[in-house]
Design a protein around this nucleic acid. Structure first.
Lengths: 145, 145
DNA sequence: TTAGATGCAAAGACTTTGCGCACTT
DNA sequence: AAGTGCGCAAAGTCTTTGCATCTAA
């Protein structure tokens, strides 16, 4: 009865498990990865439920998602704001401090009235390893971390 | 016979039409929009052909694509390098001069060895109109241009 | 008890791939 | 003539939605 904005949210096993997974991972997970992790504990939980839970968590501002240049979005706990650098070649992503965007952010606001969201989209480019590697063929995902 | 790198590329009606559409549009088009535009002249051309042609044009470095935070990628002629600002609310995208990224680019290269690609992914945020509009509900795409 | 939450299956949006015929060279 | 390019259809990936059932409160 003590619901906010008419939305009576319930605490369920699936939600608790999703939260646990996100806390344990401490990184970026796709919905599919979250689903797999949750299903290790609760095999019945379906992907659609995961999407619905993630959506709810985002409304509650517990979670944010980002698009890193790959088809699947990634989710992580809302916390310290940070940016993402994603390598176009090996697809690895690193987080960088939000402060790198300070100057650019001010510039865009002043010049275009545009309020930068440092989280939502990654910066694309080539990481050190892939720059060094010869132009052509580089094995994507040769390292997982 | 005078082919480069063993790739015997042929000039076809579909390719010519795609090129015309891209030149005429002078902006960002999704594969779907390109398909529609091409089909206005040549209704037989299928979406798969459009994707294949765009892929070829990208290999030839005539075209580049970018991900603007929406599911469908957008394509445009390779030309002057520029960045993209995409509004999370109304989805409109504006191009900005590459020079805005100069300082950030140097910083990322020095600090992380990361070579920024200014084209490939957009910066996300809120445009002036959507910042001014009250937080909650804003009609997306209320203006097309 | 009762409205929100879930599982399952189907639909949807975007893109890729396979196959045989047509067209460019 | 030879082989690339195309149309069509099917498959694939990621995500959303509909509906009957279950369950937290």
């Amino acid at each position: 009865m003590s619901t906010v904005r008419g939305a009576a949210k319930r605490v369920t096993a699936a939600k608790r498990t999703v939260a646990e997974v996100l806390v344990a991972a401490r990184g970026h997970l796709t919905a599919d990865e979250i689903t797999s992790a949750v299903q290790r504990e609760r095999p019945e939980v379906s992907p659609s439920t995961i999407y619905r839970i993630l959506e709810e968590f985002e409304e509650l501002e517990l979670v944010v998602h980002a698009h890193l240049g790959q088809p699947a979005a990634v989710y992580h706990l809302a916390g310290v704001v940070h940016g993402h650098l994603t390598c176009e070649v090996c697809q690895r992503t690193v987080e960088i401090p939000s402060s790198h965007f300070d100057a650019l952010s001010r510039e865009l606001l002043a010049r275009y009235g545009f309020q930068l969201d440092r989280h939502h989209l990654a910066l694309s480019g080539r990481c050190r390893d892939c720059r060094n590697a010869r132009a052509g063929v580089v094995t994507p995902r040769e390292a997982t971390t």
